[in-house]
């Protein structure tokens, strides 16, 4: 540091400048490693998987449609809310709303986490099964008044 510091700046500035650069690089290297670990673990929300899973439904619904939502997961829980938000994102620009918010005759997305009798699950909510896309994804139509 000797001549370098004396020639261009006071010692204290040289020391602080060196420390700032070295410590910042160390902090970033540490974060770089942690970010790599996160990247290896993948998306915790599995959004791309939801987009791929719901893609077949998109062809059945016009882009500006309002679509209802029915699921076996309660949206009051984190898991159910995550499933609802992910489905809403995957279906956008279609507007996904709770099934009660759809007019009679409107379409309702069924998004289920486990196999079951989808027709019966829909009937309990006043919905008629239209199409089963597999993988827990179905499309209903809300009964007309």
């Amino acid at each position: 540091m000797g001549n370098f510091a004396q020639d261009v700046m006071p010692n204290r500035i040289a020391a602080v400048s060196t420390a700032v650069a070295v410590l910042t690089a160390a902090a970033l290297l540490n974060l770089f490693d942690r970010a790599g670990e996160q990247a290896r673990q993948g998306d915790p929300y599995a959004i791309q998987r939801q987009i791929d899973r719901l893609r077949p439904v998109l062809q059945e619904l016009p882009p500006s449609a309002r679509v209802g939502y029915l699921s076996d997961l309660d949206t009051a829980d984190t898991r159910g809310l995550l499933a609802f938000d992910a489905a809403r994102y995957a279906l956008a620009p279609r507007l996904l709303v709770p099934a009660a918010g759809v007019d009679p005759g409107g379409r309702v997305l069924g998004n289920f986490s486990a196999p079951r009798d989808f027709s019966e699950a829909g009937a309990r909510a006043g919905l008629t099964l239209q199409k089963d896309f597999g993988n827990g994804v179905v499309l209903y139509r809300k009964a007309a008044r």
Binding site: Q41, D43, Y45, D85, R88, Y89, A92, P93, R94, L95
Partner: peptide
Amino acid sequence: AAPHGKWDAWAIWNLRARYLAGDG
């Protein structure tokens, strides 16, 4: 690690971007 962003990103900001980009 999260190509669509963290939760608020895809559930709020990018979601609404999809609505705005959607025709009509």
